[in-house]
Amino acid sequence: MSAEIHYISEPHPVSGVTNSKLGVWLFLASEVMLFGGLFSAYILLRTGVTDWPRGHEVLNVPLATLNTVILITSSVTMVMSWASLELKKFSKFRLYMTITILLAIAFLVVKGFEYAHKFDHHHFPSTSNFYAIYFVITGLHGLHVIGGIIVNAYLLLPGSKMWKTNPEQFTGRVEAAGLYWHFVDLVWIFLFPALYLL
């Protein structure tokens, strides 16, 4: 008898993917629907009123642009960290992963400045639905960034022990975490113009 679960590190012969990859994509599919619900709310609220402020007139576009650059860069370093594992270069993986986490933290710091600035000017979710949707969506996105930092930090520090015992599975984990991280980037790519530019 074997209690062993198959296709954790090697792909299933028919579906062609590992369990974790399929699982992460399913999770991302549900995330698409989550943000879909929020975007739907945004569209309905915005088209329902006449006096919706233009994002670039009330929000800080340079800071948000900086954050866009930070997040896109972190996406690249994330994919590079995975590629390093594929090339069996563990130290490079650590370097890229560290940069990814630092960039994620930088993103949050910038976001923190942005929020603090809004609070100083007494702009809260209760001020108007523009600010409400701004705070809720960026806040939820921020939570996703924090989640990504936790996962990536786990893979960088305690989780990386697995590289010695089961490099295939570890690479799979990093790829899965990467998929999530790129999704967080992808959401921001839509948030940025939707909230800040239009």
């Binding site: 994509w25 599919a29 629907m33």
Partner: peptide
């Protein structure tokens, strides 16, 4: 990517579009 993933995403995008458009 493999077909199964693409399939799941197409399904999701369909419902996503529906969710986005209908309330408005």
């Amino acid at each position: 990517e493999k077909k199964i993933i693409i399939f799941i995403l197409i399904l999701t995008v369909f419902f996503f579009a529906f969710l986005l458009a209908t309330p408005s």
